[in-house]
Design a binder for these strands. Structure first.
Lengths: 210, 210
DNA sequence: GTCTATATAGGGATAGAC
DNA sequence: GTCTATCCCTATATAGAC
């Protein structure tokens, strides 16, 4: 307890949690990470687009990783929001029955936050690696990890779990697959078509013995 | 014509097209790119796993990019194989009608070459960038680009194209989503479940006016 | 065909002035 | 809070010996 008694603030906590420029940095980083990827984006590039210098960014984020981590936290919030709905459910049957509603909520979130989900998809590997390096809070808060856990649950019949995974894949690929694919179709219209398709996929599940 | 008269071989063509060590380099690179990603894999790492040094690799590949490019060509071959089946089709209706069969073939290919498709998915961005830098032959040979082109075809009703995209997404995400998700289920069994799900998704398409 | 040694560039990160 | 200048490291790529 003798060391580190001088620091007036928490050592590893971000310095300006709600700062306006801090948010701008995160927004610009999100843009660049989506355009070029995390590893191909340098601090210098982020600073240039913001109109400042490298060193200025280091006032807000001690390491480049911390920018990535902070963006991941935005996704965590969405994940918690989605999975809080299933809090009480325990048995596999109930979990499986809740899936269609969960998927609907997921579609809404993707439509509302396309950049964030694109970021998650296109920087999947970089996000994996910071989880190994740092134990950034509970691992189970991540939306994807919770979905995977649910899809691993042995209480749900395999055939049904596969359908559930398929429905998620259909949503992600179609909604994030790039706007040019379907021309200028408005996002809402696309979402409803995907929603219908995903639900048909789930509905045609063959009933199996428990 | 005065210059470059001395070279006994083509200048930018790879030196040992069918060499055994060359293939080993590509296999090891494929492994590492799948584990850590293209940009996080150094030439030194590839050389170490191969049991040699950096400089040795530069005998076979002039640039790191060329390794990526060569692996991409393996995918091109698969794409050509798939799309050669549709060569004669012209009208949108016929193209849409051929989709289920095309999807079946696609599933077979993913099952037979999981590492290659994983490589494509997890290094998507790096592959995009070499397409910009170099015009590496016809762009339309890429499987993904051809699929996108088909899904953009305005002759096919939007609802149907969305279903087609959904079916592709279901296949990719479920088959490449990581083996841990469904435990130790054999790949073939999984493939048949996915195949059934994807076809149900396509079959329940609502008939619309042409 | 494979090595050692090196050139060169760029990235992350820090020190300290203002 | 933001700058300049700099350190240190690692990466790609090349030259040339063997």
């Amino acid at each position: 307890m003798a060391r580190a008694a001088k620091q007036p603030k928490q050592p590893d906590q971000p310095k300006q949690r709600g700062s306006a420029t801090r948010e701008r940095i995160l927004d610009i980083a999100l843009e660049l990470f989506n355009e070029k990827g995390y590893e191909n984006t340098s601090i210098r590039e982020i600073a240039e687009r913001l109109g400042t210098t490298k060193a200025a960014l280091y006032y807000y984020f001690a390491r480049k990783q911390d920018i990535l981590l902070e963006l991941h936290l935005r996704l965590h919030a969405l994940g918690r929001e989605t999975f809080d709905r299933l809090g009480g459910l325990e048995k596999g049957e109930e979990l499986a029955a809740a899936w269609p509603e969960l998927l609907d909520h997921f579609i809404d979130q993707v439509i509302d936050n396309p950049e964030l989900f694109l970021f998650h998809q296109r920087n999947h590997r970089a996000l994996e690696q910071i989880q190994d390096d740092e134990r950034h809070q509970a691992e189970n808060e991540d939306l994807e990890q919770q979905m995977r856990a649910l899809l691993s649950s042995p209480e749900i019949p395999l055939a049904q779990r596969v359908r559930m995974a398929c429905s998620a894949g259909a949503v992600i690929v179609t909604l994030l697959g790039g706007g040019e694919m379907f021309g200028n179709v408005p996002a809402n219209e696309l979402a409803e078509l995907v929603r219908a398709a995903a639900h048909d996929l789930l509905a045609s599940t063959v009933v199996t013995d428990p």
